[in-house]
Nucleic acid binder design. Sequence first.
DNA 1: GCAATATACTAGGACATCCAAGGGTTTGGA
DNA 2: TCCAAACCCTTGGATGTCCTAGTATATTGC
Lengths: 168, 168
Amino acid sequence: MGSPLPRDPIADAQRNWERHGWGEVAAPMAAITAIMRTQQILLARIEGVLKPFGLTFARYELLALLSFARSGALPMNKASALLQVHPTSVTNAVDRLEKAALVVRSPHPTDGRTTLIELTAEGRTLAKRATAALNSEVFGQSGFGDDDVEHLIRVLGDFRKAAGDFAD
Amino acid sequence: MGSPLPRDPIADAQRNWERHGWGEVAAPMAAITAIMRTQQILLARIEGVLKPFGLTFARYELLALLSFARSGALPMNKASALLQVHPTSVTNAVDRLEKAALVVRSPHPTDGRTTLIELTAEGRTLAKRATAALNSEVFGQSGFGDDDVEHLIRVLGDFRKAAGDFAD
DNA sequence: GCAATATACTAGGACATCCAAGGGTTTGGA
DNA sequence: TCCAAACCCTTGGATGTCCTAGTATATTGC
């Protein structure tokens, strides 16, 4: 999008916050802004790796989730809950994955309200290949040190739990 | 969107990664996924606080940026660079802010290609009020401990720098 | 057993982000 | 001087996310 800035814009924002008398919350503001920006960078990397496979991150996440399900199938509402996105987002992703013949919708055997998403053979193969690519090109070169990774997992895990993501 | 899950879905994903022989990258995968999810939670909180002001986070960021500029005005390309978003995203935000009379577009005095975004009096007032709300309702209650905030700022700062965000 | 409530998925709409292309303005080298 | 290359902003299109209904199916309670 652009060349590197001369100075860190988030550090500048933090200084601005302090200068305006909001020093009390300047650091958390900076941390939160940094999380937003980091997510943006990571998402761009991931999408770049997935593009050759004709996948987006949202669709990949669904494929990966299905590939770990015993039967290779999950109800849409389960997928929505596990991926922690709105049900309509799952509908959207399934529509596109189904057009690409990577999944199929099938009726739930006992509950007429529920629709099952099933991985096709192609879907399973593509999920494997895409995962290998992400592992080697993104997760394997995250740029985070081992200690930092552990720290992030712990701190963000606590945050997500406090936010009500899971009971554990 | 839903009630808490019985177990942490990201920890489950990490276990799945390990079970499939990708233990080497399971932890970074979990950390990255946690960052994505945390961003989603934080964005939802922020948008919730800004909604009463008729603002979204993208528009708020632009207003805040302008409010810190000496003259209360910035060229669009500068705003795009500092906010680290695509120029078309700035165009979009300015269109809406201008409709709301919070900013105005004006021609650059010496460069005919450039458009300046200028804060209106209303825009400046709203930015102040929205910032106060975010400070007290989000940044002041982030849920991150002081040490964790410092750690996040450092680790994510290093990451952003390595990603080419800034030279410093 | 049947009506009221809850649950599951989808359709339509509002926003944001990015990319690709197009039209206008500046700059720089031949 | 002048034209090509670089730069700036906007338009149009593709995706994703969420929200608000609306339809269909299950469950519950009387």
